[in-house]
Computed example of a mutant assay.
Amino acid sequence: MGTYADVKTQTAEAANGDHSLEDESDGRPLAPLQHFSDNLDSWNPTLIDALAQGRRIVTFDYRGVNATTSWTPHRVRAMAEDAVEFITALGLARIDLLGFSLGSSVA
Protein backbone atom coordinates (compact mmCIF):
# COMPACT_ATOMS: atom_id res chain seq x y z
CA MET A 1 0.00 0.00 0.00
CA GLY A 2 1.25 3.49 -0.83
CA THR A 3 0.62 6.62 1.15
CA TYR A 4 -2.21 9.10 0.96
CA ALA A 5 0.16 11.52 -0.73
CA ASP A 6 0.42 9.03 -3.64
CA VAL A 7 -3.33 8.44 -4.10
CA LYS A 8 -4.71 9.80 -7.38
CA THR A 9 -7.71 12.12 -7.33
CA GLN A 10 -10.79 10.64 -8.99
CA THR A 11 -14.24 11.97 -9.86
CA ALA A 12 -17.56 10.47 -8.82
CA GLU A 13 -20.83 11.57 -10.37
CA ALA A 14 -23.63 12.08 -7.84
CA ALA A 15 -27.15 13.43 -8.18
CA ASN A 16 -25.93 16.80 -6.87
CA GLY A 17 -22.96 17.10 -9.25
CA ASP A 18 -19.49 15.67 -9.63
CA HIS A 19 -17.25 15.32 -6.58
CA SER A 20 -13.50 14.91 -6.51
CA LEU A 21 -12.34 12.16 -4.18
CA GLU A 22 -9.41 10.09 -3.08
CA ASP A 23 -10.04 6.50 -2.08
CA GLU A 24 -7.37 4.58 -0.18
CA SER A 25 -7.04 1.04 1.16
CA ASP A 26 -9.64 -1.61 1.97
CA GLY A 27 -11.88 -2.43 4.91
CA ARG A 28 -14.80 -0.71 6.60
CA PRO A 29 -15.20 2.72 4.96
CA LEU A 30 -14.44 5.94 6.82
CA ALA A 31 -15.06 9.42 5.42
CA PRO A 32 -13.18 12.23 7.14
CA LEU A 33 -15.09 15.50 6.66
CA GLN A 34 -12.87 18.58 6.56
CA HIS A 35 -13.29 22.07 7.92
CA PHE A 36 -14.49 25.22 6.19
CA SER A 37 -12.84 26.22 2.90
CA ASP A 38 -10.56 23.18 2.83
CA ASN A 39 -10.25 20.46 0.21
CA LEU A 40 -9.18 16.82 0.10
CA ASP A 41 -5.56 17.78 -0.52
CA SER A 42 -5.40 19.54 2.86
CA TRP A 43 -5.54 16.33 4.90
CA ASN A 44 -2.26 15.42 6.55
CA PRO A 45 -1.05 12.21 4.83
CA THR A 46 0.37 10.91 8.13
CA LEU A 47 -3.08 11.13 9.75
CA ILE A 48 -4.91 9.57 6.79
CA ASP A 49 -2.33 6.76 6.53
CA ALA A 50 -2.78 5.99 10.24
CA LEU A 51 -6.58 5.94 9.83
CA ALA A 52 -6.21 3.67 6.79
CA GLN A 53 -4.82 0.76 8.83
CA GLY A 54 -7.56 -1.81 8.17
CA ARG A 55 -9.98 0.83 6.85
CA ARG A 56 -11.05 2.16 3.49
CA ILE A 57 -10.60 5.94 3.62
CA VAL A 58 -12.72 8.05 1.29
CA THR A 59 -11.91 11.75 1.36
CA PHE A 60 -13.91 14.09 -0.82
CA ASP A 61 -14.51 17.73 -1.52
CA TYR A 62 -17.77 19.42 -0.68
CA ARG A 63 -19.83 20.60 -3.64
CA GLY A 64 -18.41 23.80 -5.13
CA VAL A 65 -14.93 23.24 -3.67
CA ASN A 66 -11.77 22.48 -5.66
CA ALA A 67 -12.59 20.43 -8.80
CA THR A 68 -16.22 19.66 -7.88
CA THR A 69 -19.11 20.99 -9.91
CA SER A 70 -22.10 23.12 -8.97
CA TRP A 71 -22.38 25.76 -6.25
CA THR A 72 -21.23 25.65 -2.65
CA PRO A 73 -24.19 25.19 -0.29
CA HIS A 74 -24.94 28.00 2.16
CA ARG A 75 -26.26 25.73 4.92
CA VAL A 76 -24.71 22.88 6.88
CA ARG A 77 -27.84 20.77 6.30
CA ALA A 78 -27.32 21.06 2.53
CA MET A 79 -23.67 20.03 2.96
CA ALA A 80 -24.80 16.98 4.94
CA GLU A 81 -27.33 16.10 2.23
CA ASP A 82 -24.54 16.43 -0.33
CA ALA A 83 -22.40 14.01 1.67
CA VAL A 84 -25.27 11.50 1.66
CA GLU A 85 -25.69 11.92 -2.12
CA PHE A 86 -21.98 11.37 -2.64
CA ILE A 87 -21.81 8.31 -0.38
CA THR A 88 -24.89 6.86 -2.10
CA ALA A 89 -23.29 7.44 -5.53
CA LEU A 90 -20.32 5.34 -4.39
CA GLY A 91 -22.71 2.50 -3.58
CA LEU A 92 -21.83 2.50 0.12
CA ALA A 93 -24.71 1.43 2.36
CA ARG A 94 -22.76 2.11 5.58
CA ILE A 95 -19.85 4.39 6.29
CA ASP A 96 -18.27 5.87 9.41
CA LEU A 97 -17.82 9.65 9.49
CA LEU A 98 -15.06 11.60 11.17
CA GLY A 99 -15.76 15.32 11.31
CA PHE A 100 -13.14 18.01 11.84
CA SER A 101 -14.41 21.51 12.73
CA LEU A 102 -17.26 22.30 10.28
CA GLY A 103 -17.03 18.66 9.19
CA SER A 104 -18.31 17.68 12.67
CA SER A 105 -21.51 19.61 12.00
CA VAL A 106 -21.80 18.04 8.55
CA ALA A 107 -21.38 14.57 10.12
Rank of each mutant, 00 (worst) to 15 (best):
T69R: 10
R55N: 09
R63H: 05
L90I: 10
A80I: 00
A67V: 15
A5Y: 10
G99Y: 01
T88W: 01
A14F: 00
R94W: 02
E22C: 08
F100W: 03
W71R: 14
D18E: 11
A31T: 13
L51S: 12
A5R: 12
D26R: 10
N39Y: 02
L51P: 08
Q34N: 09
Q53T: 13
S42A: 13
A78E: 09
I57Q: 03
R63L: 06
L21P: 07
E85A: 15
R63I: 14
L98D: 05
V65H: 06
S25C: 15
V65L: 13
T72S: 09
V65Q: 08
T88L: 02
A93E: 14
A14G: 12
A14M: 00
S70Q: 12
L98I: 13
A12Y: 02
S101Y: 02
R94F: 11
D96M: 14
V58G: 01
S101D: 09
Y4P: 08
G27E: 06
L21H: 11
G17N: 06
T3N: 05
N39G: 15
L92Y: 12
V76L: 05
D61R: 06
R63G: 09
L40Y: 06
S104Y: 04
I57V: 14
L30A: 15
A78C: 07
D41S: 01
H19K: 04
N66Y: 05
T46W: 03
E13T: 15
G91D: 04
L92D: 12
F86T: 06
A12C: 13
